[in-house]
């Protein structure tokens, strides 16, 4: 198996109905740096209209059959990727270096991520790159109030593209930005006008890209610190979505990696549906390099080392975005698992 960072990155473009996914995708595909991308599109209905909009990628585009990508045709996604991979190996399609998957507007992206991580062939050729979520500057706040999928799509994102900023009121854009920063502080917010965005910024910087992962982690941490300090000063219990909470756990003591693995797998087994996102930088006992963890619901990416700590702070910092789980209980639980391991190690 190739080194993880050398696997073909898979980017997921998601976003609520009418939030500008297809516009964004079309702009992206016209960008010269995406000549080497394969695209999988999917829409509800008998005819995938979006397919005709992604004209320039015909050769590498596989139109998934009708239905919802997440629930009813998950095998199609898997089969489509494997088929495309076989064609690439046989030289029947250009050698694409990245793949983009567009979800339906009503999609919960987590089953897609699960599919990508559960198939052994896919796992050996591909890795998750970034999750890019489009949010409509005009209707985004209302959609997040009314539709759980919309909140989830924003919660699991690595990059959030705020679309339709050219027709939205400045105040609406600011309120939406504030909401998104609280909901998912580590996601990068990028404003788009008519779908125009910095494509390189969207696709090239991801946590598993050796060239950019240090900068990406620094960005996470800065966002986390900003969110944390604002949170402590405002004490506004209503500012988050009613059920979604974002918080950071900080541990002064180095963590026991084995205990952490037992704890996190057990947490995700019992509450994976409610742990929308977990990511952080860990100080692991016996490991000099900082260890990066990154998970979306039931799926945890392989941990990675950073070459060096991004700053002088050597504490473990873990950001959680959860649905109706208390921070205190999570913190107490992880501390108990870690302390039990420390007690065992001391007794040995």
């Amino acid at each position: 198996m190739a080194a993880y960072s050398r696997l073909t990155p898979l980017f997921i473009v998601t976003g609520f109905l009418g939030s500008g996914k297809t516009t964004l995708l079309n702009r992206m595909l016209r960008h010269p740096s995406l000549k080497d991308a394969a695209v999988l599109v999917n829409e509800f209905g008998d005819v995938g209209l979006d397919h005709f909009l992604v004209e320039k990628m015909d050769e590498n585009t596989v139109l998934l059959e009708s239905g919802c990508l997440c629930c009813t045709i998950r095998d199609d996604l898997k089969d489509a990727i494997i088929e495309l991979n076989s064609k690439r190996e046989r030289g029947e399609v250009p050698y694409y270096k990245r793949m983009i998957i567009e979800t339906t507007g009503l999609a919960d992206p987590s089953p897609i991520i699960f599919t990508l991580n559960s198939d052994i062939i896919i796992k050996h050729h591909y890795r998750l790159g970034s999750i890019i979520t489009t949010v409509d500057a005009v209707n985004g706040l209302k959609q997040m109030k009314r539709h759980a999928e919309s909140v989830k799509q924003a919660s699991v994102a690595d990059r959030i593209v705020i679309s339709k900023t050219d027709i939205a009121e400045a105040g609406d854009i600011e309120r939406l930005r504030a909401k998104l920063e609280r909901l998912n502080p580590s996601a990068e917010l990028i404003e788009a006008v008519n779908g125009d965005v910095d494509v390189k910024r969207l696709l090239r910087a991801d946590i598993y890209d050796a060239r950019t992962k240090g900068a990406e982690v620094r960005r996470w941490l800065a966002a986390e610190e900003k969110n944390d300090s604002e949170h402590h000063h405002s004490h506004d219990v209503n500012r988050h979505d009613e059920h979604i909470r974002t918080f950071t756990l900080t541990f002064d003591e180095a963590l026991d990696w084995t205990a952490f693995g037992i704890w996190l797998t057990m947490l995700l087994h019992a509450h994976g549906e409610k742990v929308l996102r977990v990511k952080g930088i860990l100080n692991v006992k016996g490991v000099e390099a900082p260890v990066i963890i990154n998970g979306v619901q039931h799926v945890v990416h392989p941990p990675m080392h950073l070459k060096a700590w991004p700053d002088d702070d050597r504490r473990s910092r873990i950001v959680f975005i959860v649905d109706d789980i208390g921070q205190d209980l999570i913190e107490r639980s992880l501390a108990a698992f870690n302390a039990a391991a420390a007690a065992d190690a001391a007794a040995a």
Binding site: W263, T265, M266, A270, I325, F337, A339
Partner: peptide, 30 residues
């Protein structure tokens, strides 16, 4: 992950790290 599922199959109990009795048991060891 398979371990937790197996444990639940065998015991019919949920393997939950947020179970306060389990946490208390682990804290009791320290």
């Amino acid at each position: 992950p398979q371990m937790w599922q197996a444990m639940e199959n065998i015991t019919r109990k949920i393997a939950d790290p947020l179970d306060t009795k389990l946490i208390g048991r682990l804290e009791g060891r320290v």
